[in-house]
Design a protein around this nucleic acid. Structure first.
Lengths: 229, 229
DNA sequence: CAGCCTTTTTACGGGTTCTTTACGCGCTCG
DNA sequence: CGAGCGCGTAAAGAACCCGTAAAAAGGCTG
């Protein structure tokens, strides 16, 4: 595996140098952009594996950069924000950023987030077939089998399952699920999740009352586990 | 790895000389500042990896120095305080200091705290997986195991643990914990901490009565230790 | 336009989690 | 040496969340 390339969009030279040093030391290739406009161009031409974007850019709102990149790429995007920019931080996530780091931050924390984001980006392209005991779900083909016979999943059931599969083994919050499957305006309607999780369990789990794969995280959300392929 | 630089802000010449000798002997580079004003400047220009700040400075409140540094840097900050300065010690921690040493202190203790703080600065919240004896906690996946079997943590237990883990090896004040886990309006409700710390200990510690990892700092807060990965 | 499938809505019971209260112990300070 | 404070511990009631079922509403297709 070759070194990952990281795009760094940051206007303050001091922070830029600091970050480049830290990233170099980890063996990443680094491409720097001193402003937003430049960043959107470099994101396209230099083909980075991940982008780090400061929200306090002078020439263009950071959100705009994110939206631009998201319009053609699903690369992981990390956002840097000052503590006072709580609002724009949320806006950035809604615009499509994957994670954020609040200034002042420790190098270790940033590196950990980068590793997590890259790992996640790599998996997204990965295996599309889930094995859940006697059931298998092919996300690419939109089909599910159980003991060899086809199980019909409705569109919403399928999107819900896909959303959980995208973060396999990790908790997905109720908020995330509702926003992604039903739309942001449905956040808070948690009973939808309860109804549809039951349906998925009835269709896929051997013992729906004691689920092995579709796990509840009380007060937080749900988690999908899967057998190894 | 090159020698770490330590900034020492201390007005009494005697203590300063004493500390310099101890730090020199350990191979640290030392930068001395005789007063608070000087300290804030040196913190910016000399790029130390860690700062030691005496709270009894004559020209400026120690808290102010800490706040200044924290406004642009996340370097570890250790505070020296006299026994009588219990209050200002806590205030310093709330202002962003990472740990404290009470005068009179042993050199060994101070050096241990310095090592812990530097180690923390290097790996930071990076390590997603905590090892606490027979228990492991994966903060990213939001899962805990003990002797191989899953331990269920409730949302509050998890947030509390995560908050402590974010400042691994360092003291987190009761105020900070309450504000971050329950919300700012719960500051003062310290019995919540006692109840939940016990639950965490029961679930994670081998001998909950004599905790090795979830440490009480009487009158101040709590501290999480962890084994090396 | 009728029937079927899907989605939305409502209601309730049970279990988990959170909150609150009370008490005992050790430590410190007067 | 006694009082007071802070912490640990235990337990019970309240609040909340989840699973479950089933009916109503919506939409597509023949």
């Amino acid at each position: 595996m070759t070194a990952a390339t990281i795009l760094l969009v940051e206007d303050e030279p001091e922070i830029r140098r600091f970050l480049r040093a830290a990233l170099d030391a980890e063996g990443y290739r680094v491409v720097e952009s001193a402003n937003a406009r430049r960043g959107t161009i470099d994101a396209g031409t230099r083909k980075p594996d991940l982008a780090i974007i400061d929200l306090g850019l002078p020439d263009l709102d950071g959100r705009e950069v994110i939206r631009q990149i998201r319009s053609w790429s699903s690369m992981p995007i990390l956002v840097l924000s000052a503590r006072s920019e709580e609002q724009s931080k949320i806006a950035a996530l809604d615009a499509g950023a994957d994670d954020y780091v609040t200034k002042p931050f420790g190098v270790g924390e940033l590196l950990a987030r980068i590793r997590a984001a890259l790992r996640h980006g790599a998996r997204a392209a990965g295996g599309q077939v889930l094995r859940l005991g006697a059931a298998t779900v092919d996300l690419g083909k939109r089909r599910a089998l159980r003991d060899g016979v086809e199980v019909r999943l409705t569109p919403i059931e399928f999107r819900l399952l896909a959303c959980l599969a995208k973060h396999l083994d990790m908790v997905v919050t109720q908020r995330q699920l509702l926003a992604e499957v039903w739309g942001p305006s449905y956040i808070g309607q948690t009973h939808y999740l309860r109804v549809y999780m039951k349906q998925l369990r009835d269709k896929l789990e051997a013992d729906p009352v004691r689920p092995k794969y579709l796990i509840t995280e009380t007060g937080v959300g749900y988690r999908l586990l899967a057998d190894e392929a």
